[in-house]
Simulated scan of single mutants.
Amino acid sequence: MNKVSWQSPSNIALVKYWGKKSGQIPANASISFTLDSCHTRTTVEWEQIEADGAPFHFEIFVDGEEAPDFRPKIETFFQRTAELLPFLPSVRMRIDTSNSFPHSSGIASSASGLSALSLCMGDIALQMGAVDEEGFERFCSILSRLGSGSASRSVYGGLVVWGQHKDIPGSNDSFAIPYPHHVEHVFSTYRDTVLLVEVGQKSVSSTKGHGLMNGHAFAEARFKQAEENMSEMIQHLQTGDLHHFGELVEAEALTLHAMMMTSRPGYMLFRPNTIEILEKVRTFRTEEKVPVHFTLDAGANVHLLYPASAEQKVHTFVEQELKQYCKDGRYIHDSVGGGPKRLTE
């Protein structure tokens, strides 16, 4: 058996993507911090076989246990990527995957999980001659996008853009790119503490949430706003203006959840403890003059973003004030990371 193995991180969007067109094309551009400690490790053991008419042959294991519940998602991924991975019918695979954080809890587990799998599949494609080394990362970003839109951004480290935008040269709806403009150094060591308010399956999946943007009363206004916010974000990243950077990040998070609440049917992923945390963060920032801001993905958990210089104060604040609102007192200290790592030689 041949073996490929990759570790790929999650990411946290600063300007959010919510709503998509057919073919996993985003309705607006987005930008994210790639994380470090929140990652997925995936190993694919594979061998060539005689094609027997079946489109693919695989087993999926999560944390060492066979996981039939994950099979439909992987099958959908392979169906979408079949043209890019023409060798699929003639390989048999065992996929082993594990997360360093909870699945389906508002940390982007699909982003790290599907980018890790895409990197493994890209590695196999490399060995089979279906892609060359030069185009490897872009190829894997395209694969990742077809699995889960935000996964396209996890193929790179640091700040990453996905979706075409007039102010970002090279940006594209089909794949992500490393952010091309000047970024003040403070952002390269930014921290992200993830407060685990809720652990487990979300009541409404992101796939369903994106679908509810079709025909949403505020959809077009939101897409226009996101484009404008991308342009504004470029300025804050260039100047190192932490106040306006954080203000914009918080507005994006609240807008994301406002879109969910005003869908038809509407739904709410905030929990009472989520709101308690947001209020506490705002009070702490005002009283202590610490540049810590919140954001959220499509879930109840809260991400605290802050510069490295504020780390000690924020860690103390989390332990003394916010831990009580976390499920079993759980939280994860993370930071901006360098991107995926190939684990096999």
Rank of each mutant, 00 (worst) to 15 (best):
196 L>T: 06
284 F>Y: 12
10 S>C: 11
218 F>R: 10
199 V>Q: 13
156 Y>G: 01
25 I>D: 10
23 G>K: 11
38 C>R: 06
189 T>R: 13
311 E>I: 02
221 A>G: 14
277 I>T: 01
99 N>Q: 10
81 T>I: 10
214 N>S: 10
242 L>R: 13
218 F>C: 13
148 S>K: 05
269 L>T: 13
11 N>H: 09
121 M>P: 00
175 F>I: 07
105 S>C: 05
118 S>I: 03
303 H>T: 07
249 V>R: 07
172 N>E: 06
308 A>I: 06
242 L>A: 09
271 R>Q: 13
9 P>A: 11
334 D>H: 04
78 F>C: 10
55 P>D: 08
302 V>E: 02
247 E>Y: 08
330 R>E: 14
255 T>M: 15
168 I>H: 06
342 R>A: 05
333 H>L: 12
309 S>N: 00
281 V>S: 06
77 F>M: 09
161 V>T: 04
21 K>N: 14
62 V>C: 14
6 W>L: 10
58 F>G: 08
169 P>H: 04
130 A>C: 13
41 R>W: 10
320 Q>S: 11
341 K>M: 15
169 P>V: 00
137 E>L: 15
134 E>S: 15
274 T>H: 09
171 S>V: 07
53 G>K: 02
96 D>V: 07
226 A>D: 09
148 S>A: 01
151 A>S: 01
179 Y>W: 14
270 F>D: 06
71 R>G: 13
273 N>R: 12
127 Q>G: 08
191 R>E: 11
312 Q>T: 11
179 Y>C: 10
191 R>G: 08
125 A>I: 02
52 D>Q: 09
305 L>W: 04
227 E>Q: 15
301 N>C: 14
202 K>S: 14
287 E>W: 08
125 A>W: 08
299 G>R: 11
120 C>G: 01
288 E>R: 14
179 Y>V: 06
316 T>Q: 15
175 F>L: 08
304 L>C: 02
75 E>N: 10
69 D>E: 15
205 S>Q: 08
207 T>I: 11
322 L>E: 04
194 V>W: 05
332 I>Q: 06
194 V>E: 05
101 F>T: 07
343 L>Y: 02
44 V>T: 00
64 G>Y: 03
75 E>S: 15
339 G>R: 05
40 T>I: 12
99 N>T: 01
266 G>L: 11
181 H>R: 14
139 F>S: 02
171 S>Y: 02
166 K>N: 12
99 N>P: 02
210 H>K: 03
169 P>R: 00
102 P>Q: 07
179 Y>F: 14
334 D>M: 03
162 W>R: 01
275 I>E: 13
163 G>W: 04
306 Y>C: 07
143 L>C: 07
18 W>Y: 08
146 L>T: 04
124 I>W: 00
178 P>N: 13
299 G>S: 13
188 S>P: 08
66 E>D: 04
254 L>G: 04
134 E>F: 09
345 E>H: 11
108 A>F: 00
224 K>Q: 15
209 G>N: 06
